[in-house]
Amino acid sequence: MQAERNGPTPEAAGLVDAVDPPVTGYRLLLPAEWVQVPLRRGTEEAVRQILDEAFTRIPADAPMDRIGPYKRELERRFRASVEGAQKGKALDLYLPVKPLGDFNIGASILVTESLVPRPSGRPRGASEPTETAVQLLSSDGVEDADLSSGEIDGALAVRREHVAGAAPERGAELPSRRVEYILSVPGDPDRWFVAAFSTVGGGDPRDELAEVLVEWFDAVMANFRWRRA
Rank of each mutant, 00 (worst) to 15 (best):
F103A: 14
V214G: 00
A32L: 06
E161H: 10
I182M: 11
R27S: 14
D190Q: 07
V111S: 02
E11F: 09
P205V: 01
V82M: 07
V134C: 03
S176C: 05
T132R: 03
K98E: 09
S120G: 11
P175G: 09
E169K: 11
G187R: 00
F217N: 05
R27G: 09
G68Y: 04
R79V: 10
E53I: 10
A46M: 13
A18V: 15
I50A: 02
E73S: 07
T9S: 10
I50L: 09
Y70C: 04
A60H: 13
W34F: 01
L174Q: 12
A62G: 05
I67F: 04
P10G: 06
E75P: 01
A210E: 01
V142C: 06
P59F: 15
R40G: 14
R79N: 05
R206S: 12
D52V: 03
A85E: 01
E33L: 05
M221Q: 06
S184I: 12
V142N: 07
Q86A: 07
M221E: 05
F224G: 05
P69L: 07
N223S: 15
V37N: 00
V185R: 01
D188C: 11
D153L: 08
H162C: 08
D218L: 03
S139D: 09
T43Y: 11
E73M: 13
E44N: 06
G154T: 10
L93A: 02
I67K: 02
L30S: 03
L95T: 04
P99D: 08
S81R: 14
P117L: 10
W34M: 01
T56I: 08
P123S: 08
S138N: 12
V163N: 11
E131P: 02
E128R: 10
I109M: 12
T56E: 12
A167M: 14
E131Q: 13
E45A: 13
V214F: 01
A46W: 07
V111T: 04
T43D: 12
A167H: 04
R159K: 15
P59M: 09
S138K: 08
G101T: 07
G88E: 11
D52P: 06
P189Y: 06
A172N: 10
Q135F: 08
G25E: 05
P22I: 11
G165C: 05
A210L: 04
R76H: 10
E128W: 03
R159V: 15
G203M: 04
